[in-house]
Simulated scan of single mutants.
Amino acid sequence: MDIKEFCLAHGFDMSKCAVASGGGDFGMMELKTSPIEFLTLAEDDFDRGGLAALVNATTNVKRAIVGQLDQLLISFGYPSLRWNVPKKIERLRALGLLAPRLLRKVVDMRNILEHEYATPDLKEVEEALDIASLFVMSASAMFIPFDDVLEFSLPDPAAPENLVNRITAGLN
């Protein structure tokens, strides 16, 4: 018996139901070094202070962002490891996921460091850390496993006792 048959058999009027999806889960592909680990390294670098700390924090912030982009894309089946950052961001946007333009600012800062040998100042690195933290943490939070249920419920919980007013179905 499927859910619809069960509802009909118990006099459950599905046209008057509210449906809530607890969903399922989405397991993100594990990377050898996670975006959060790169972010932690960047924070540690920044806290040490000095020129080496700014340089290392900048590169680790970029790694955290690009690692998060790749983790999301690989999890959706895209071979993104060799893609450039603009393509990765564009693909995430096409999927309807968060990929703010601010990410490009951080990547550009790191590219200036690597290709023009210009060290970012303390304020720029601090801002980059904040951007990376917000992106990595929000992207990770979107895919924390959630309930594996689908719930149908009638808007009137005061229905007669012999009438079913809520059905919860496990999706596994």
Rank of each mutant, 00 (worst) to 15 (best):
S138L: 14
L98A: 11
D121R: 12
Y117P: 01
E116G: 03
L154P: 02
F12S: 03
D13W: 03
L171E: 06
Q68R: 15
L8C: 05
K87T: 14
V125Q: 04
A169H: 14
L113I: 08
L103V: 06
L41K: 11
A169N: 08
G22P: 01
V125T: 07
N56H: 15
F26K: 13
D70H: 12
A42C: 05
L51K: 13
L39F: 01
M28G: 02
A128S: 12
V66E: 12
A159N: 09
L92P: 00
L31T: 04
Q71P: 03
K87L: 12
L95H: 07
G23L: 10
S133P: 00
V149W: 06
P160T: 02
V85W: 03
G23K: 10
R104Q: 13
S140K: 12
I112G: 02
K16E: 14
P86S: 05
K87I: 09
F76E: 07
I131A: 02
V66S: 04
T58C: 14
F26T: 12
D47K: 15
A169Y: 15
F152R: 06
P35N: 07
I3V: 15
F12P: 02
L103T: 03
Y117G: 03
C7M: 15
G96R: 07
D130R: 09
A118R: 11
E151N: 12
L129K: 00
L163R: 13
M29C: 08
I131V: 15
V125P: 02
A52F: 11
E30I: 07
P160Q: 05
L69G: 04
R63L: 10
L154E: 08
F38I: 01
L41R: 10
A94F: 08
W83F: 09
L129A: 01
A53W: 03
A42T: 02
L72R: 03
S80E: 06
N162E: 14
L95I: 06
E124N: 13
C7K: 13
S133A: 11
M142P: 00
